[in-house]
Amino acid sequence: MAGTAFLGLGVMGFPMAGHLAAAGHAVTVFNRSPGKADAWTARHGGRQAPTPREAAQGAEFVMACVGNDDDLRQVCLGPDGAFAGMARGAVFVDHTTVSAEVTRELAQAAGQAGLGYVDAPVSGGQAGAENGQLSVMCGGAQADYDRAAPVIDAYARICRRMGDVGAGQMTKMCNQIAIAGLVQALSESLAFAQKAGLDVSEVVEVISQGAAGSWQMVNRHATMDRGEFDHGFAVDWMRKDLSICLRTGDALGAALPVTALVDQFYKDVQAMGGGRWDTSALIARLTR
Rank of each mutant, 00 (worst) to 15 (best):
A156T: 09
M217R: 02
R285K: 13
A113P: 10
A156E: 05
D80I: 01
L77A: 12
A107R: 01
A100G: 15
R226M: 07
A120F: 08
A193L: 07
G85Q: 04
A49H: 04
W277H: 12
V235F: 04
A141K: 10
D80H: 04
T279M: 13
R157A: 14
F233R: 00
N219F: 09
E54Q: 13
S187F: 02
S243R: 15
V269Q: 00
A284E: 13
M272Y: 12
I158G: 15
S280W: 00
R220V: 06
Q209N: 14
L242K: 01
T223W: 11
T171Q: 10
V98G: 10
W40E: 05
L252M: 12
C174I: 10
M16R: 01
G45V: 09
G125Y: 06
V206A: 15
V91R: 01
G213M: 02
A110S: 08
E60W: 07
L282R: 00
V204E: 05
A255Y: 09
A56S: 14
K267Q: 14
I152W: 06
W215N: 10
T279A: 13
G168I: 00
G81W: 00
A212T: 06
K172M: 08
I283M: 11
A129T: 08
A49S: 09
G58T: 04
A37N: 04
G114R: 09
D80L: 05
T4C: 14
K195F: 07
I177T: 14
D225A: 13
T248I: 10
N219H: 14
G18R: 01
A59F: 00
A120I: 08
Q264E: 14
C138N: 08
A109M: 11
S135P: 10
E188L: 00
R220C: 12
V62Y: 00
Q184L: 12
D225G: 11
F92T: 01
D225Q: 13
A178G: 14
A120P: 07
I177R: 02
A17R: 02
S214K: 07
